[in-house]
Simulated assay, not measured.
Amino acid sequence: MTAQPPEIPPRTVPAGEIRASHDDREAVVEQLRDAAAEGRIDLDELDARLEQALTSKTHGELAVLTADLPRPKPAESAQPLVLKGGMSGASRGPGRWEVPAHVIAHGGLGGVKVDFTRVECRLAEVVVEAYGEMAGVTIVIPDTWAADTGGMDPGLGGLRDRTTPDRLPGTPLIRLTGSGGMAGVVVRHPNRRERRKLHGDPAQNS
């Protein structure tokens, strides 16, 4: 029987080295133009930064261009997104979806999963109000995002925060509130299986 070669785990890429998309560059371009219109940078500096933004290849290169500027004001959605686990469960993501400023998740009997890994969100902060109830709530965020769980009541099921504080400038902060209930609430970055899908087939869940 031929021995199988050992599996090589996927390499974890530092947040600043993640490749920038056309939308990432366009978002920085809009922020720079707004800053110039507000008098924060002059036209010569605007031209120089725009040129760098359009040729930037990574998130880190883009972050440098807006590090001394205020974050864009969030265009908040009037209605929160409400997910109810019910009997069979509910989920949002991992495909692309419009992220509102407020998400409410009730685990119910089937559980709820909220996956932000493929979204393009320009909000500075997203409030996720999670209630674990009987089956729990799982929240998955990109490596470049961070979570603030200080407003969360762990309840009987507890709160498991498996995220890192390595937040990239200009990315959203997930502010977690609510209660763990009986089953608890988990907030984490993608696991190994989810990372394989992200890096192996970026369009799979679009």
Rank of each mutant, 00 (worst) to 15 (best):
M1W: 13
A3I: 14
Q4R: 11
P10D: 13
P10W: 09
G16K: 02
G16C: 02
G16D: 15
E17D: 12
E17L: 15
I18K: 07
A20D: 02
S21C: 06
H22N: 09
D23N: 10
D23H: 14
R25P: 09
E26F: 05
A27L: 09
A27H: 10
V29S: 00
E30S: 09
D34Y: 05
D34H: 10
D34G: 06
D44Y: 05
E45S: 10
E45P: 02
L46T: 13
D47S: 10
E51C: 03
Q52T: 04
L54R: 13
T55C: 01
T55R: 05
S56F: 07
E61D: 14
E61S: 06
V64E: 15
V64T: 10
L65V: 13
L65R: 05
A67L: 12
L69C: 04
R71Q: 08
A75V: 14
S77E: 14
Q79N: 07
Q79W: 09
P80T: 06
P80C: 04
L81Y: 06
V82R: 13
L83Y: 00
K84R: 11
K84C: 05
G85Q: 08
G85K: 08
S88E: 13
S88D: 14
A90R: 11
G93D: 09
G93T: 12
G93R: 09
G95W: 08
R96H: 13
P100T: 06
A101E: 13
A101K: 08
H102G: 01
I104R: 07
G107S: 00
G108D: 03
K113C: 12
K113I: 15
D115F: 03
F116G: 02
F116M: 09
R118H: 11
R118D: 13
L123H: 14
E125I: 02
V126W: 12
V127Y: 05
E129H: 12
A130R: 01
Y131N: 11
E133R: 04
M134C: 03
M134W: 06
A135W: 01
V140P: 02
I141Q: 02
T149V: 11
G150S: 15
G151M: 04
M152D: 02
D153H: 03
G158V: 00
L159R: 01
R160G: 00
T164L: 08
G170Y: 10
T171D: 05
I174V: 15
I174M: 15
L176K: 07
G181C: 04
R188P: 12
P190G: 03
N191H: 09
N191D: 13
R192V: 15
R193L: 11
E194W: 04
K197L: 15
H199C: 03
D201A: 12
P202D: 14
Q204H: 12
N205V: 01
